[in-house]
Simulated scan of single mutants.
Amino acid sequence: MEIGIFSVGDIKPDPHTGISPTEYQRIHAITRIGKHAEEAGFDVVATGEHHCPPFVPSSPVALLAYLAASTERVILSTATTLITTNDPVRLAEDYATIQHLAHGRHDVMLGRGKDERVYSWFGKNNADGMELAAENYALLRRLWREDTVDWVGEFRAPLRDFTSVPRPLDGVPPFVWHGAERSVGTAELAARYGDGLFVNNLFRRVADFRPLVDRYRERSAHHGHRPVVGVGGQAFVCARSQDAVDEFRPYFNATPSAANGSLEDLVAGTALTVGSPQQVIDKTLSFREHFGDYQRQLFLIDHAGLPLKTVLGQLDLLGAEVLPALRKEPSAV
């Protein structure tokens, strides 16, 4: 199993000081976290794409290109790239370039996003969301797999005798994940093409996400593909469980999740783990009861105003105590 971290890149005040990092500080914190994750032994670093406050990663391409030059081993990914509002030609060129810069250790997670306002900002209609995703992805696949493309669709200008450059490294396009919370259409898209499905697994009961993964596995078999499943999660860890709860509670109370119940309620019912390394191990291994064996686990690591120093300490503790235990479980592979 690949085990990694992802950032949504939110800017929030530290509840202890009331001070928020600047955009400059937050962007550099994300890159520092990515480099430190490699040092701590993680396999994957991923960043989201957002186009409004309080988030800063409007350009995951730039962040990943920086990390490609700053790391040596870790797989670089997105979490997610908006397939609906980005031009497929731009995506094909940008992510093939990162693939070359990263010597092939790069993949892409595609999704529709949660903020419907983005559609109008990029000249699209949110009512066309699933159709945009399907058409744009079909074109993206062709641009990566065919040297010359002639194409006519509904949502962008036609292409004639077009070659996307650079070509994918060694002729092999980046592996594609499709990120989803509940979209059956996204699961079908992933299954049809033999791509991976990454299930969000955040903020709601873990069992709520199982039908989507079951549907994806069923449709993958129908299309003759082996399913590749990724699962999200969130952890805050200290050597002593109560220390983790006491330290994380002020940050949790400042998040929208607090409106859905107490910290204890969400730890009991969702993928959020706040506790000792063994509790993180046990909770993460329990995900297999819902999703079966899966191939990638990503932890949300740095949201809600957590200071950079705290996040780096989290990476060290997870890397030293949690990763080895997860990797030695034969049924987790």
Rank of each mutant, 00 (worst) to 15 (best):
N200Y: 12
H178E: 04
W177G: 10
R210V: 11
F236W: 07
F209Y: 13
A190N: 01
G230F: 05
F209C: 06
Y216C: 04
V228E: 13
T186V: 15
R210M: 15
A191N: 14
R226I: 15
V213K: 05
Y216D: 00
R210N: 06
S220K: 05
V228R: 12
G194Q: 11
V237F: 07
R210E: 14
F209P: 01
G233K: 09
Q234P: 03
G185D: 00
A207F: 08
V237K: 01
A244C: 00
G194R: 08
A207Y: 15
V228Q: 12
V228I: 14
V237H: 01
L189E: 04
V231Y: 07
V199I: 09
R217F: 01
Y216H: 03
A191G: 14
Y193V: 04
N201G: 08
N201C: 14
F209K: 06
H223M: 05
H223N: 06
D195N: 07
A207G: 09
L197M: 10
L197R: 01
R210P: 01
T186M: 13
D208N: 03
R226E: 15
P227D: 06
Y216M: 01
E181M: 08
G232C: 14
V199P: 00
A239C: 12
S220V: 03
Y216Q: 04
L189I: 00
R205I: 10
S183N: 09
V231N: 14
E181T: 12
G224I: 09
G196F: 03
V231F: 00
A239F: 08
A207E: 14
R240E: 08
S183M: 03
G233R: 09
A221G: 07
S241W: 06
E218L: 10
W177F: 10
A235I: 02
P227K: 07
R219C: 07
A235C: 03
R217K: 09
D243F: 12
A239N: 13
G230L: 02
R217M: 04
H223V: 02
R215A: 14
P227S: 10
D195C: 00
G185L: 02
A221P: 14
G232K: 08
A191T: 10
R192F: 12
F236G: 03
G232P: 09
L202V: 05
A235T: 03
R210K: 15
V184P: 13
D243S: 06
P227N: 12
L202Y: 12
P211M: 06
F209A: 08
R204H: 10
V231I: 12
P227F: 05
R192G: 15
L197H: 01
G185A: 05
Q234W: 06
G194T: 12
E188Y: 11
G224Q: 01
D195I: 02
R205P: 13
V229K: 05
H225L: 00
H223W: 06
H225K: 02
R217V: 01
V206T: 06
E188W: 10
A235S: 11
G233P: 02
A187M: 09
R226T: 07
T186I: 10
E188S: 11
G194F: 03
